[in-house]
């Protein structure tokens, strides 16, 4: 059974860190205000803003130390990653999860944060939150149902999401633990200590800015490493801003995925609102869900 960190109560503290790419503090202002309006305190980590001159929000040591501090702090009840980018792979094996194991807390984010979701699911069987991050609150985003779904998740409300059907859907009902995240990261972790098992689970996947041939190649890697054949169900989110080669690949991302999963008989839905766009519901990784892919709608409920 997956361990559930305690849900948040008014007055609890959410720490914000950037374990990967750099984010200026002002881009997180709306997020900070909103979290406060939701009734939480906010602790700003050293890696949000700061004076890093390059891609990363700080050196490996600084990013590791900031995340470690938040993981170990008794008065921090959840950790929201300000943004993704790239960088968790470089520190994941150095994070000390011993306090987290005893006192789990919600870890929130997506994209590069998939490394934390997968690593924690694999090694500590503790639920995490795949959800919008700080910049999703900007430009009125804080009013959206997607950002609000993060609040509901933190409050302990059970998730129930619906989305329209897609012509490539494979109908059916699946029950299992929900796992997944960013396809590139999940493929990248195959064979490492952060490689999550998918047997009997509902897998969700999304990606952004990838070449079509590379999406195909990653799906072949999932398939050939046995990640797809024993799923309970599969949720395909947004595959946005895809790129093509000079010689056109000849099919789109969803066609590629449809072809790869053709041989399986579990339910599959396409176009679920989990993505690098604003359509990005908070999903509890490691928690039991029911996926129903029907004739008229798709539902995912905890």
């Amino acid at each position: 059974m997956t361990k559930l960190p305690p849900y948040l109560r008014p007055g609890d503290t959410i720490g914000i860190v950037c374990p990967a790419g750099y984010m200026p503090l002002e881009k997180a202002q709306t997020c900070i205000q909103t979290l406060q309006e939701w009734g939480y305190r906010v602790r700003i980590g050293n890696t949000l803003g700061g004076d890093s001159p390059n891609y990363f929000s700080g050196t490996d040591e600084q990013r590791l130390a900031d995340l470690q501090t938040m993981l170990d702090a008794e008065d921090v009840q959840a950790i929201l990653c300000g943004r993704g980018g790239y960088g968790l792979t470089r520190i994941i094996d150095r994070i000390d999860f011993s306090t987290f194991k005893k006192q789990p807390k919600w870890i929130i984010g997506y994209s590069d944060i998939t490394v934390l979701h997968a690593h924690i699911h694999k090694n500590y069987k503790t639920a995490t939150l795949h959800s919008p991050m700080a910049s999703a609150f900007n430009d009125e985003g804080y009013r959206s149902e997607y950002v609000e779904s993060l609040w509901q998740a933190l409050e302990g409300k059970k998730a129930r999401y619906e989305c329209p059907v897609h012509p490539y859907d494979k109908k059916g009902t699946a029950i299992g633990e929900l796992v997944g995240g960013n396809l590139s990261l999940l493929a990248h972790m195959i064979g490492t200590d952060s490689d999550m098992k998918t047997k009997g689970k509902i897998l969700f996947l999304e990606d952004v800015g990838e070449y079509l041939y590379n999406i195909d190649r990653m799906f072949y890697q999932l398939k050939r490493s046995g990640k797809l054949d024993k799923l309970a169900g599969l949720i395909i989110g947004g595959f946005t801003d895809t790129k093509d080669t000079t010689r056109p690949y000849g099919s789109g991302a969803y066609e590629i995925i449809r072809d790869v999963v053709q041989e399986y008989d579990y339910p599959v839905c396409f176009g679920f609102p989990v993505s690098h766009e604003k359509e990005n519901y908070a999903l509890k990784v490691g928690v039991g869900h029911k996926l129903k892919v029907g004739k008229h709608k798709v539902t995912l409920e905890e």
Binding site: A187, H188, I190, G191, D195, M218, Q221, S225
Partner: peptide, 10 residues
């Protein structure tokens, strides 16, 4: 080589 990780060609 990376995308062969975990497969029969690794």
């Amino acid at each position: 080589i990376e995308t062969l990780s975990g497969t029969r060609s690794d």
